Simulated assay, not measured.
Amino acid sequence: MYYYTSIHSDDYTKKVKSKALEQYLISHLEFEKVSHLTFSKEINGELIKIRGMHADEDGNYGFDTLDGIEEVNLIEIDLPQHIDAILESIIADVAIAIANEFSLKIDEDNGLN
């Protein structure tokens, strides 16, 4: 089972400025900044986290901190373990909004039905 939804370009070459992602998530989608490139929002009683990251061309990543990263090419939405149809629909809408805003795509194996 997948516990996150990934949003990125086909080959991970398209990058999004960290400041642009932050501004969009806070002002348009009403997420709160937890730390650099990490955001959260309570939706239907579940805490949803979004994280911007830098990945290689295969989507692999590894990091100790996101501090200092000014561009991201991968955005992940953590999915709660207990997800119902309503919450799944809301998270899907958030993922679609982010993908549309930054001309990215939602990974086909995204953990959502």
Results as ranks from 00 to 15, higher is better:
3 Y>H: 12
5 T>E: 08
5 T>Q: 05
5 T>F: 01
5 T>C: 09
6 S>E: 15
6 S>N: 15
8 H>T: 13
8 H>N: 14
8 H>K: 12
9 S>M: 02
9 S>N: 06
10 D>T: 14
12 Y>L: 04
14 K>Y: 10
14 K>W: 05
14 K>H: 08
15 K>S: 09
16 V>H: 01
16 V>K: 00
17 K>T: 01
18 S>D: 06
18 S>W: 00
19 K>G: 04
19 K>Q: 08
20 A>G: 03
22 E>W: 00
22 E>H: 00
25 L>A: 02
25 L>E: 04
25 L>I: 05
25 L>W: 00
26 I>A: 02
26 I>V: 08
29 L>W: 00
30 E>L: 10
32 E>F: 07
34 V>A: 15
35 S>W: 10
38 T>N: 14
38 T>G: 03
38 T>P: 02
38 T>D: 05
38 T>L: 12
39 F>K: 06
39 F>D: 07
44 N>R: 15
44 N>C: 14
45 G>V: 08
45 G>D: 13
47 L>R: 04
49 K>D: 11
49 K>V: 13
50 I>S: 09
51 R>S: 13
51 R>H: 09
51 R>F: 02
51 R>Y: 05
52 G>S: 07
53 M>W: 02
54 H>D: 10
54 H>Y: 14
55 A>C: 09
56 D>F: 07
56 D>C: 04
57 E>N: 13
58 D>N: 11
58 D>I: 04
58 D>H: 06
61 Y>C: 08
61 Y>S: 02
62 G>I: 10
63 F>A: 06
64 D>Q: 10
64 D>T: 07
65 T>Y: 06
65 T>H: 06
65 T>Q: 02
66 L>K: 01
67 D>T: 05
68 G>L: 00
68 G>M: 00
69 I>R: 01
72 V>D: 03
73 N>Y: 05
73 N>R: 03
74 L>A: 03
75 I>C: 01
78 D>P: 06
79 L>A: 01
82 H>D: 07
83 I>E: 00
85 A>K: 12
85 A>Y: 12
86 I>L: 03
86 I>P: 00
89 S>L: 08
89 S>R: 11
89 S>I: 01
89 S>K: 14
90 I>P: 02
91 I>P: 08
92 A>K: 10
92 A>P: 03
93 D>M: 05
94 V>P: 06
94 V>M: 05
95 A>V: 08
96 I>R: 13
98 I>L: 02
99 A>T: 04
101 E>A: 10
101 E>V: 04
101 E>K: 15
102 F>K: 02
104 L>I: 05
105 K>E: 12
106 I>H: 05
107 D>R: 09
109 D>K: 04
111 G>E: 13
113 N>L: 15
